[in-house]
Design a protein around this nucleic acid. Structure first.
Length: 514
RNA sequence: CGCGGGAUGGAGCAGUUUGGUAGCUCGUCGGGCUCAUAACCCGAAGGUCAAAGGUUCAAAUCCUUUUCCCGCAACCA
């Protein structure tokens, strides 16, 4: 059985994640569930990144310890991941003692072998804000936070010799076109960073202490890169002194799923760290687009933040899963608004899917008391329907392999639409009036039940609860991924899967609740 | 001339690699049907494919120029 190791980025615990931050875990979940269904031995890891100056500051502002602060936020992150019904195998935290210990060993190893050296970080420093800024971050040559003058300052720091591995990395990226996805990101990395030449990376800090201490120099804490990125290996048993069997089984990861904003860290710093540790590189890094609220980036200051738990309360978990999985294109940013959510629920989930299931089971019960098998009478419309059902597996796989999740969902909905059309073509209610057409009618209902069953099976990775509910209403356990001619249905009681939503009313309700 | 991506009916997208009647979902309008959640099915309106020029028998698709939008331009996770 092939293994499949998939990760999300670990969420930074500075504040509760909004729906845009939550999109990634749902995307990863759909992929993980799909791979499991395909028979892969899947390990799906997510978690939280809990160190750093920003967190230390927030904790101080709240009058609590950093650890208390991150415990609280990590709990919120986990609760959100859980409310989206995500099936991660492990939730890691960078404050786990084991992680901290291995990070220290990694840092020491890299230092001992000469990849990390002590130097000084020189940059544009704002004394009032106690922060370094880059040239491009400055506003009119002044500190972007307070507007005061900045001056050149230096700070003792450890550096990682990125340049040493630069050529190897370029060669790797160019000989593995699937490594960075989408491809345009690959060009950005090559042209902006690799070709001009990498600067050495500052990997320790002395200006704050909420981090993993450098064992041989206690003034320093390990800066985010080595700390956060190495979560992908520390938690599956990597150890510079000898890794576990588990590690050898899972590494390298098949997929790091990350936001487009941290592609650089995952396609330059991380691979180079791995090269220095003499470890293989992950097979693929996918920098997914963002979910925007209307036209804007979601942010508290804009007041347009949506949280997954609120949305789930309003619309149900599968409706939100469907929305984020379906509406976000492969390469461009997606949009989320209440209006669009409601429109999607009504048109796709209630009308196309829900109503199809409802009307089909109703007919099975009405015409056959729910007892339906295939008869030897066929109609001229059967062939096309069955063919489409049987093509689903291959079509979905093609999409999923390219990480086109929305398009994979579309494949299923195309079959559902075809099924609705099949009902109009065969007009079961007309057949029902003629006793001589009883067998034809039964075949028609059977074909519909089978189309729905197979669709439900494929829906499972995306809408797990809905998939189960459909199979429950069909009252069938078979999960074959193709059309079966010899099942014996004894359908259950139909009940709407998704209620149509009165848009005006719902929007008003939401408005009043805020 | 920093690098890269994009501009397609009211909205969101596909099609551009390998030129050949412009396609899908939603919305609008008209019709049909009644098994079903005012759902479902059919049909129609609506685009000179950002602009200009060029190559070609033929260009959304190839070339050139222009305009506009977006991402990246390194220590912020």
């Amino acid at each position: 059985m092939d293994k499949y190791y998939i990760t999300t980025a670990i969420a930074y615990t500075s504040s509760k994640p909004h729906i845009g931050n939550t999109y990634e875990i749902v995307l990863a979940d759909a992929i993980a569930r799909y791979k499991r269904q395909k028979g892969f031995d899947v390990y799906f890891q997510t978690g939280t990144d809990e160190h750093g100056e920003k967190i230390q500051q927030k904790a101080i502002a709240k009058g609590i310890s950093p650890k208390e602060y991150v415990d609280d936020i990590a709990g919120q992150v986990k609760a959100i991941w859980d409310c989206m019904n995500t099936s991660y195998d492990k939730f890691v935290r960078t404050t786990d003692p084991h992680h901290e210990e291995v990070v220290q060993k990694i840092f020491k190893k890299l230092y001992d072998q000469g990849d990390i050296y002590k130097g000084s970080y020189e940059g544009l420093y704002c004394t009032d804000c106690e922060a370094f800024w880059t040239e491009s971050q400055l506003v009119d040559g002044k500190c972007p936070d307070c507007g005061r003058e900045v001056h050149i300052a230096s700070e003792e720091a450890y550096f990682f010799k990125l340049s040493k591995y630069q050529d190897r990395l370029i060669e790797y990226i160019e000989s593995h076109p699937e490594f960075i996805q989408p491809e345009s990101r690959k060009n950005e990395m090559i042209n902006n960073f690799l070709k001009p030449g990498l600067q050495d990376l500052c990997v320790s800090r002395t200006t704050f202490d909420w981090g993993i201490p450098v064992t041989f120099d206690d003034k320093h804490v390990v800066y985010v890169w080595i700390d956060a990125l190495s979560n992908y290996i520390t938690n599956i048993g990597y150890d510079p002194d000898g890794s576990s069997e588990e590690f050898n089984k899972w590494w390298p990861a098949e997929l790091h799923l990350i936001g487009k904003d941290i592609i650089r860290f995952h396609t330059i710093y991380w691979p180079i760290i791995l090269m220095a540790l003499d470890l293989p590189l992950p097979k693929q890094v996918f920098g997914h687009p963002w979910l925007l609220s209307g036209m804007d980036k979601m942010s508290k200051s804009r007041g347009n933040v949506m949280y997954a738990d609120d949305l789930v309360k309003l619309f149900g978990v599968d409706a939100i899963r469907y929305y984020v999985l379906h509406e976000i294109p492969f390469a461009n940013d997606g949009t989320i608004t209440y209006d669009l959510i409601i429109e999607k629920i009504n048109s796709d989930l209630a009308n196309v899917l829900g109503n199809l299931v409802n009307r089909t089971i109703s007919m099975a019960n009405k015409y056959f008391d729910g007892n339906v098998t295939k008869t030897n009478v066929t109609t001229e419309f059967d062939k096309d329907l069955i063919e489409k059902v049987n093509n689903l597996s291959e079509n979905i796989e093609k999409r999923m392999n390219k990480l086109e999740i929305g398009a994979a969902l579309d494949e299923i909905f195309e079959v559902l639409r075809r099924s609705n059309k099949y009902i109009d073509e065969t007009t079961p209610w007309v057949l029902a009036k003629d006793e001589a057409k009883k067998d034809e009618l039964q075949t028609v209902i059977y074909n519909l039940l089978e189309s729905i069953r197979v669709s439900a099976v494929f829906l499972k990775p995306f809408l797990p609860e809905t998939s189960d509910e459909i199979l429950k209403q069909l009252n069938i356990e078979n999960t074959e991924e193709s059309f079966n001619d010899s099942l014996e249905y004894k359908t259950g009681t139909p009940s709407p899967l998704f209620q149509r939503i009165d848009k005006e009313k719902k929007l008003e309700e939401i408005e009043n609740a805020q």
